[in-house]
């Protein structure tokens, strides 16, 4: 709900005619930061891009390297982050989606090679399994009322176990019957990032301009109030878990075609954590009711460029985790402080 969030900060204190001197300056800073929440991440992403461009020149701009940044790194984080943003806005999280990424291609492979399913039907089921995992996450979180952190930790491990047992930890080739479909999904080097951009625009519109988006914000912002207004809050949460699962399946198939392989280590916790990190440094707090899709996309860009650029300049990739960790803490503190200041601005 980026533009409401911006507005809420932008107009803070206005009806009361403003507070005293220091409070005023403080509010102005908050106002600027708030309105520029997505812009801040965008500027960081652009600055990193420029830095590596100037420092590394052609080894950074080479097509193969750019493809690595955008299609290998940014696209999967950004697509999974779309679902996580919707869930974080509802006050939930999905830790299992990375294993949906790994499991969906295997399911497709089993259905085709062991059960003689037609290719398209197998792909349909591979996408469906993400939706089903989402529904299971929804069931335990919403209906049984286990916190989603625990629910999805559990379903994530179960999926990991399923991948490892059924595949005997062995990679598999893509079945011949579905090779042709790959060109629509991600054979083309830029395909993953094109998918990511199109889905980002779509999800941004869904979040800001549709009932589903407004109701997602309402559920996160005031659960009881949303229920009293007649919003079917359970349906919203179930739906967002299922959307996230579907995105996990999609990314799984994309990566399968992109790497031309089915591997048991695809996805996993790392991608899920990167997606959540992208959402958080993009300006989505897990405080409920606020979040931005565009911010999450640029968050993914920051992660993607850093993951690629650090090894290029000869800095150990091991350092990356420290930087990402720091970035998460800084962004989260900024989010919490912004919320606190906004609340102070209203009284």
């Amino acid at each position: 709900m980026s533009d409401t969030a911006e507005r809420s900060i932008g107009k803070a204190g206005a009806p009361q005619g403003g507070a005293a001197g220091t409070g005023d300056t403080l509010m102005r800073v908050v106002r600027v930061l708030g309105r520029q929440r997505e812009a801040t991440v965008f500027i960081i992403a652009a600055a990193l891009f420029l830095y590596f461009l100037i420092d590394q020149g052609s080894s950074f701009t080479a097509k193969s390297n750019q493809v690595t940044i955008w299609s290998d790194n940014v696209a999967p984080y950004a697509i999974i982050a779309l679902g996580e943003v919707f869930l974080l806005i509802c006050g939930e999280i999905d830790l299992s989606v990375g294993f949906v990424v790994g499991f969906a291609p295997y399911l497709m492979h089993y259905l085709i090679d062991f059960y003689a399913f037609p290719g398209l039907l197998a792909i349909f089921f591979a996408l469906l399994v993400g939706v089903v995992v989402g529904a299971v996450n929804g069931f335990f979180t919403v209906t049984v009322r286990v916190p989603s952190f625990i629910t999805t930790l559990g379903t994530g491990f179960i999926l990991l176990g399923l991948i490892n047992t059924t595949s005997h930890d062995q990679p598999a080739p893509i079945p011949a019957s579905v090779l042709g479909i790959g060109k629509w999904i991600s054979n083309y080097a830029w395909a993953p990032i094109i998918w990511a951009v199109v889905l980002t625009v779509l999800f941004h519109i869904v979040l800001t301009r549709t009932r589903w988006g407004l109701h997602t914000v309402s559920v996160g912002g005031n659960l009881l109030g949303a229920r009293e207004a007649g919003i079917r809050v359970n349906r919203i949460k179930y739906g967002n878990f299922m959307i996230t699962g579907l995105l996990g399946s999609l990314v799984g198939l994309q990566q399968m075609y992109y790497t031309n392989n089915i591997t048991p280590t695809a996805g996993s916790y790392q991608w899920m954590f990167y997606a959540v990190t992208a959402a958080v440094i993009g300006g989505t707090a897990m405080l409920g009711g606020t979040g931005t899709i565009i911010g999450a996309f640029f968050g993914a860009v920051v992660l993607g460029i850093l993951s690629d650029g650090f090894p290029l300049i000869g800095v150990s990739a091991d350092l990356l985790s420290i930087i990402f960790g720091g970035a998460i803490l800084v962004s989260m503190v900024a989010n919490v402080q912004l919320t606190r200041l906004r609340e102070r601005g209203q009284s």
Partner: peptide
């Protein structure tokens, strides 16, 4: 009905 907690969503306009 208008509930005690008003059923307003702070983040929305």
């Amino acid at each position: 009905a208008v509930y005690q907690d008003l059923a307003l969503v702070n983040q929305l306009t």
